[in-house]
């Protein structure tokens, strides 16, 4: 089983993507998709990706809901900043955040989350010092942002990936 399906999650996503692209569940296409799902991970093993595993589906659902809320909220906040007739002084700036999260997949998900919420951008993560640098559009208090990232996302991501 391990050798046949080294990355079950990837295989599943490939099959689903194939069926969505073809918009059918006809047996022939399912068979083709299964072939693709077997072949894709086999090619990926040649790249030797780091091992990762996912646990706690409950935490994943909680994280998704939280991220969705934050995306809506920060969309409104940034839209307000842009449409404000006279721009008040805002101090955009870089924030350095010391992270405890080390799993590469967890960090990748964190990068997606931080960039997907408008107003914050992932700039750099140094794996040696474990310091993450983000850019914030409306920087009021540096400590606030550090606490937000650490409490809202990092703890849940650690539960899921570590």
């Amino acid at each position: 089983m391990r050798r046949l399906l080294p990355f079950p999650f990837l295989s599943g996503s490939l099959l689903i993507a194939w069926l969505l692209l073809n918009q059918t569940t006809a047996p022939g296409q399912v068979l083709l998709g299964c072939g693709l799902a077997l072949l894709g991970p086999w090619i990926l093993t040649l790249l030797q990706p780091p091992k990762g595993r996912i646990r706690r589906p409950g935490a994943i659902a909680r994280l998704c809901w939280r991220v969705l809320l934050d995306i809506v909220r920060s969309n409104i906040a940034v839209a307000r900043i842009i449409l404000r007739p006279r721009p008040r002084d805002r101090t955009p700036g870089f924030v350095n955040i010391p992270l405890d999260l080390q799993d590469p997949y967890g960090l990748a998900v964190l990068a997606c989350i931080i960039t997907a919420t408008p107003g914050t951008l992932w700039v750099n993560h140094d794996p040696a010092t474990r310091v993450l640098m983000i850019h914030v559009l409306d920087l009021i208090e540096e400590g606030d942002w550090i606490r937000t990232i650490k409490n809202r996302y990092e703890r849940l991501l650690q539960e899921i990936f570590e």
């Binding site: 839209a79 842009i82 805002r90 960039t115 997907a116 107003g119 951008l121 559009l137």
Partner: peptide
């Protein structure tokens, strides 16, 4: 978001604007 590309003054501010459309 695209208006933000016009209105915001500096590059590091502008880079946030298109995320509105992208998300």
């Amino acid at each position: 978001g695209s208006l933000g590309l016009l209105r915001l003054q500096r590059f590091y501010e502008r880079v946030h604007a298109p995320t509105l459309g992208a998300t």
